[in-house]
């Protein structure tokens, strides 16, 4: 039954492609080689393909099943109740806003850094790159505790800011700081890859045509890397929205949605927390859809 086998592989092939491209969408402007090539080369080994596809499908199932499960268990009325719940909607608004502020502030500071890292070679560059990625590997609750030394009560930063003597604990600013800390690597990483994909030669030509370094950045480098920068911003935003560990330590109140879901689950149980959880999941999926859309446009444009 070779025909059936092939169609099965083909089916899984597209799924592989999709999941593999999620990350790439966010980072690389152009994938170096489509993953389908790997499978094409293995066409002579149908069993090999089939086994790999089965193993892979378990991973996919593992991701999809809980998401489908919770969505299926939540009725539309429950969801509309959640949407009408002032507490839930306030937390959603707060979460989106705090993550947005964190993203914009980090974009202003992080995009120049990304450009610098993409364009210059210097001693200790690898150290800088590692430092930027540190927040990804540190447990986020520990990151929250660490942040307290910076913005907590009696911390150095808080002591220097008039009006913030008691620190950022329990404030909107505290939430922003926690979100920024854990999600900024995604923004800097994506923007750096975007700038690296801009040929240096184009910048050189622009200089020779009379443009200052500042003008070259704003008319050549940034417009050409814009989609990667935007992808990085959306990725950071989404990461900020979903942050729980660092946020809950710096600010239990005001409550962001992830904290609210945790609190309701703790205090009232599964049924009561589910609708808010589903709402949060749907928001994140919507953001991811936007990210994918931008990534696809970028590839069809073929910059």
């Amino acid at each position: 039954m070779p025909v059936k086998r092939r169609s099965l592989t083909a089916c899984f092939k597209t799924r592989f492609q999709r999941s593999a491209s999620l990350l790439r969408t966010a980072c690389l402007p152009k994938p170096p080689s489509p993953p389908s090539l790997v499978l094409k080369h293995a066409v002579g080994l149908p069993w090999f393909n089939l086994i790999f596809a089965l193993l892979g499908s378990l991973v996919l199932l593992f991701i999809v099943a809980p998401l489908l499960g919770i969505t299926a268990a939540t009725s539309l009325t429950e969801l509309s109740h959640a949407a009408a719940d002032r507490e839930v909607m306030n937390s959603v608004r707060l979460t989106l806003k705090a993550a947005m502020v964190a993203t914009v502030v980090c974009a202003v500071l992080g995009v120049p850094l990304a450009y610098l890292l993409a364009r210059s070679e210097f001693r200790g560059k690898n150290v800088v790159l590692s430092i930027i990625d540190l927040p990804i590997i540190i447990p986020h609750s520990a990151a929250g505790i660490a942040l307290l030394t910076l913005v907590g009560r009696r911390s150095h930063l808080a002591a220097t800011l008039p009006g913030w003597e008691s620190g950022f604990v329990g404030t909107f600013a505290g939430i922003v700081v926690a979100m920024a800390f854990v999600s900024v690597p995604y923004l800097v990483g994506a923007a750096r890859l975007g700038f690296e994909a801009v040929p240096v030669r184009l910048e050189k030509v622009a200089r020779s045509l009379g443009a200052s370094p500042r003008r070259v950045f704003f008319t050549i480098s940034l417009p050409m890397a814009w989609r990667s920068v935007l992808s990085g911003m959306i990725l950071m935003w989404a990461r900020g929205i979903s942050e729980f560990g660092a946020v809950v330590i710096i600010a239990y109140y005001p409550m962001t949605t992830p904290v609210l879901v945790f609190q309701r689950f703790n205090d009232f149980g599964l049924a009561y927390s589910r609708s808010a959880a589903v709402l949060l999941i749907l928001i994140c999926i919507a953001i991811f859809a936007i990210l994918r859309f931008i990534g696809r446009q970028q590839r069809t444009e073929g910059m």
């Binding site: 040929p199 030669r201 050189k204 030509v205 622009a206 200089r207 020779s208 009379g210 050409m224």
Partner: peptide, 17 residues
């Protein structure tokens, strides 16, 4: 370079895409 008043034409034309 921007104040020299020279212009460069490259092999691959290096147009801004």
């Amino acid at each position: 370079p921007e104040r020299r008043g020279f212009a460069v034409v490259y092999q691959d034309s290096a147009l801004f895409p």
